[in-house]
Design a protein around this nucleic acid. Structure first.
Length: 973
RNA sequence: GGGCCGGUAGCUCAGGUGGUUAGAGCGUACGCCUGAUAAGCGUAAGGUCGGAGGUUCGAGUCCUCCUCGGCCCA
């Protein structure tokens, strides 16, 4: 029992309840998080959660494998935080949402790194045993898997980190081969000789994704081809057809000339009497490049070239007149290949945007060229080898070593290089100069790539299948059957699949899954024998990709085939094929029992794939193709995409600009929860930003949330629901109102989870904590919490008990809502209140106390809060004038029009009104003058009453400042 | 160069089918409190809705062009 001091200045602080908690205001996340992480690891939280959700509905997020190369960057962090949020929120909803992380391990970038090491050691990769080479690639990939795994774990990503999937696991490699064999057995493979992007430096074909465009300067040349025959335009014989190219190196393998059937061509004459055929629209360009004094041949004097006049006459012909014409190659004197006549062929692709309107065709080095020539029976000659040099026997270059440079060597193409020199000597070089344009380069070596015709393996998009459909039509249907979030992603992948060419799946490299085909040397057909294929798959499962080697051929072929009849394909698969198979070896293999649906559930699709929007062309598509080709449907039910993280100004982050944000540094400095809160606060469906100021804002938001929890913990000190709990129907209206607000928010959060709208999720949570709790509920009930307790009421008044009951409900709910976002902080909060309980992350979505319809209540209180705003606004001038400091010094009279006065929202008891408005006295009255325009007037005066020494309210019964008010003396009695 | 997407207060975001003075939270400034205290409460300032045209009685919201940025492609 506290003895009441006779002094009016007595300090009643000890008689007042103040929030008590060990939960520190300052987070110290960077130090704290690793310890929490260790606790989870020791307790095997991931397994605990699986056990806790055993038998529940599954939610399968299938992880897209990041490439095992380099440290985690901000994109990885965002992607994995989102995945973690998906799994955790689904798990919160009570589903079993396992997460098996994976890595993409094969492929050029890793191979390139190993080669780089070889080059430093002056070793030639071609002399190294491929088995040993692959072992090094494998070790390199494993190193980065291990590194990234630790970095992702530090982010608080909950997953089966001890059992990730790796595309280089033998079982995975075997499954990839098995999937490939499905394509083979169903006839969905063919070997073609198409020009493909080829890197002479890496000596391999490249996928689109492995190519990037850079602005470069090339040599542009105009070359004259003498017309030798022109059945439809005899006057052209002896004239020169002019072609323009930016790849002089392709001239030695020229095989035809293309014209535009709809293009008008002009015959021009220079001062020496040479005649040139050029598209009318391009004459000016041609003249400025060559510097020739050109005149229109046999034209009227008035018909100058400069004048944009078109007259079909003897000096102009339409492209179609070139049908059947032939020209000679500038080097025809060499004989053989060069002596053959070069036909003029009609090409739809010929435009008059640039050049001369006549296009030199080399089926070896251009897609249009290849197609047009093939249609006219002209085959590629394969004169350029894998390293970019012409074959030794290629006549023009005469085998001279100094001339046999790589065709991407600028010297080779230069105006004084071998090509131009010879053309000049032949009198065929009309111009040679610099030309700037965008040109494809290898993303690894940054060297120029070329189009080169090589034998490659393809999966056809439009070949009819046994289903009667094609791979393309099957994929288009699968796209329609999938939920795309955001919806615009569907358009994107749809247009890509509509227009994509056949899938080139072969690569001429070492580090990858082999294309395990045997090709019959006589027929050129690949072997389609399930028994052989089964042996192949078994061999790969046994010893990985090394199982496909020459020595193993007889055993693999078995007794029914003579190894001498078959060629073993030595190409490897495009890594996109690997990743396209992840659904097969992760979701279906049974190696991860957590991922298997419960008995009776049919449907091999993952619930969700979640990657950056660039994967519309990458993994989403390769998975779609692979699954459609083998299973007839997409491997996913829904696809969620996120945009890219830009710097603070919205610019792309790059090391060269120095504007990158390193997630590892950020975690070390501020903690993973800050990074998580950032990722879940931005609109990740679009490109979004990160920077110093943004992160400062995120930290502020974090602190607000943290302090909300701190207050709850402090205010709930010593609370026992059993002893203190109050039934909802016995609570004051304010408490019931807050419970309704909570229920409303709960519904919003659930919807946000359903929509994967995490930015709304976080904002809804923060707004509730700020507006409804901190600035309203907590503020009003501060007096009650602090003062409605004392020796006379050891557990506090009914009101206080009701308040604390609601605080308890709020705590239980908010800590669960926050858990998927602030994974570490929520655990800290939870363990502060319940040191002996298990992890907060095992809990399910909160069950709120049952409430009736709250619409009317919520609306009434919204009106009341509006009134409260008016009152605080009315007090403000008095504060500014220093008449009133604390709102507790104010007395207010609220004057209302009749209708408002009758409003039940306002019609509260005086005591309640004072409490809710946090003022000393409040009363409601009618207007003194009914003519006023406003519907509401607030009159404010400074209280005349003394201040209670305990609760600090100014009340009439307080005899002098520091004496006790009625309530307080009662409490202390 | 082409296709697609985006540009709302200092920051992060809201703004169904076009309709009164464009909103929230945070931050900022100022003030209060000093019993959530490197916390809490309040008030205020801040926006030519990327720019320019157009449709309409009326546009952040529809159309066109431009610009900046991004992704994909060439």
């Amino acid at each position: 029992m506290t003895e009441q001091s006779p002094s009016a200045a007595a300090d009643y602080k000890d008689t007042v309840f103040l929030p008590q908690t060990d939960f520190p205001m300052k987070a110290g996340l960077a130090q704290k998080e690793p310890a929490i992480l260790a606790r989870w690891q020791d307790a095997d939280l991931y397994r605990q959660l699986r056990d806790a959700r055993k038998g529940r509905e599954k939610f399968i997020l299938h992880d897209g494998p990041p490439y095992a190369n380099g440290d985690m960057h901000i994109g990885h962090a965002l992607n994995h935080i989102l995945k973690d949020m998906v799994c955790r929120t689904q798990s919160l909803l009570g589903k079993d949402a396992p997460y098996v992380p994976g890595w993409d391990c094969h492929g050029l970038p890793i191979e390139w790194k190993i080669e780089e090491q070889y080059r430093k050691k002056k070793l030639n990769k071609d002399e190294v045993d491929p088995v040993a080479f692959r072992a090094e690639c494998r070790a390199y990939a494993q190193h980065w898997v291990d590194t990234q795994r630790e970095q992702l774990k530090r982010l608080g990503i909950l997953g089966d980190w001890d059992n990730p999937y790796l595309t280089m696991d033998f079982a995975a490699e075997a499954t990839i081969v098995q999937e490939l064999m499905k394509f083979a057995e169903s006839g969905q493979l063919y070997r073609g000789a198409k020009p493909v992007m080829w890197s002479p430096v890496e000596k391999t074909a490249l996928a689109e994704a492995e190519v990037e465009y850079q602005d470069v300067t090339s040599t542009q040349i105009d070359v004259a081809f003498e017309i030798v025959d022109a059945p439809n335009a005899p006057e052209l014989v002896g004239a020169y057809a002019v072609i323009w190219t930016t790849t002089p190196w392709t001239i030695p393998v020229n095989q035809a000339l293309a014209y535009g059937p709809d293009v008008y061509y002009h015959l021009l004459r220079d001062e020496d009497g040479n005649r040139y055929l050029v598209a009318f629209d391009l004459i000016e360009q041609f003249r400025s490049r060559t510097g020739l004094e050109l005149r229109v041949l046999s034209g009227e004097a008035s018909h100058s070239v400069a004048a944009n006049v078109r007259n079909i006459g003897d000096n102009e012909i339409l492209g179609t007149a070139l049908a059947g014409a032939t020209a000679r190659h500038p080097m025809h004197a060499l004989g053989g290949f060069f002596a053959k006549p070069r036909p003029f062929l009609p090409g739809d692709f010929v435009t008059t945007d640039a050049g001369t309107g006549l296009v030199h065709m080399s089926p070896d080095h251009g897609e249009d060229d290849f197609d047009l020539c093939k249609a006219h029976g002209i085959e590629p000659v394969f004169a350029v080898e894998g390293d970019g040099r012409y074959r030794d026997d290629w006549a023009w270059l005469g085998g001279a070593d100094e001339r046999r440079m790589s065709v991407i060597n600028p010297k080779f193409n230069a105006p004084d290089g071998p090509i131009c020199e010879d053309l000049r000597a032949a009198g065929a070089l009309l111009s040679a100069g610099a030309f700037q344009h965008s040109y494809p380069h290898s993303w690894r070596s940054k060297a120029r790539v070329i189009f080169r015709c090589t034998p490659q393996w393809f999966i056809p998009m439009d070949a009819p299948l046994t289903t009667g459909k094609t791979l393309r039509s099957t994929a288009m249907q699968a796209i329609s059957d999938t939920r795309w979030v955001p919806a615009k992603g569907e358009n994107r992948i749809r247009s890509m699949v509509e227009g994509r060419p056949d899938w080139v799946i072969s690569r001429q490299r070492a580090w990858g899954v082999p294309i395990t085909l045997f090709v019959n040397r006589k027929t050129g057909q690949y072997l389609r024998d399930p028994a052989v294929n089964a042996r192949i798959v078994a061999a790969i499962r046994e010893s990985g990709v090394d199982g496909w080697n020459e020595a193993a051929v007889p055993a693999l072929l078995g007794p029914d085939y003579d190894p001498a009849d078959y060629e073993r394909v030595t190409d490897i698969l495009d890594v996109w094929f690997d990743s396209g198979c992840t659904h097969a070896f992760v979701l279906e293999s049974g190696k991860w029992p957590d991922l298997l649906r419960p008995e009776g559930y049919v449907g091999p699709k993952a619930d969700l794939y979640l990657e950056g929007s660039d994967q519309h062309r990458g993994w989403f598509q390769s998975s779609l193709m692979e699954s459609c080709g083998t299973r007839g449907h997409a491997p996913y039910k829904a696809v969620l995409t996120h945009g890219f993280t830009m710097d603070a100004k919205g610019m792309k982050m790059s090391k060269s600009l120095g504007n990158t944000i390193d997630p590892l540094t950020l975690i070390k400095d501020s903690g993973a929860d800050i990074l998580r809160l950032w990722a879940l606060s931005v609109d990740f469906t679009e490109d979004h930003r990160i920077g110093k100021e943004i992160l400062a804002g995120v930290s502020d938001q974090y602190r607000k949330l943290r302090n909300t929890f701190r207050y709850l913990l402090g205010a709930l000190a010593g609370f026992s629901e059993k002893d203190e709990g109050v039934r909802v129907e016995d609570m004051p209206e304010l408490e019931r109102y807050v419970l309704h607000l909570l229920a409303d928010m709960d519904a919003k959060l659930k919807q946000a989870v359903e929509d994967f709208d995490y930015n709304t999720y976080v904002r809804t949570l923060a707004d509730f904590a700020n507006n409804d709790l901190s600035a309203f509920f907590f503020d009003i009930r501060k007096d009650c919490l602090y003062c409605d307790i004392g020796p006379a009421a050891p557990q506090g008044t009914d009101k206080r008990r009701a308040y604390r009951t609601v605080l308890h409900v709020l705590f239980e709910a908010l800590v669960r809502y926050a858990a998927p976002v602030l994974v570490f902080t929520a655990e800290e909060v939870w363990s502060t209140r319940y040191p002996d309980a298990g992890s907060v992350h095992l809990l399910e979505w909160p069950e709120l106390p049952p409430l009736g319809d709250g619409n009317e209540l919520i609306q009434r209180w919204a009106r009341f809060r509006d009134l409260k705003d008016s009152v605080t606004g009315a007090i403000e001038p008095f504060r500014r004038d220093k008449v009133i400091h604390s709102s507790l010094e104010a007395e207010v009279t609220i004057r209302l029009k009749d209708a408002l006065a009758a409003d039940s929202a306002i019609n509260l008891g005086t005591a309640e009104l004072e409490e809710l408005l946090i003022v000393s006295a409040a009363s409601v009255a009618g207007f003194t003058d009914d003519d006023v325009a406003e519907t509401r007037q607030i009159e404010v005066t400074r209280t005349e009453h003394h201040k209670c020494g305990r609760c600090w309210r100014h009340l009439p019964e307080v005899t002098e400042d520091g004496a006790l008010c009625g309530r307080c003396s009662e409490m202390l009695a």
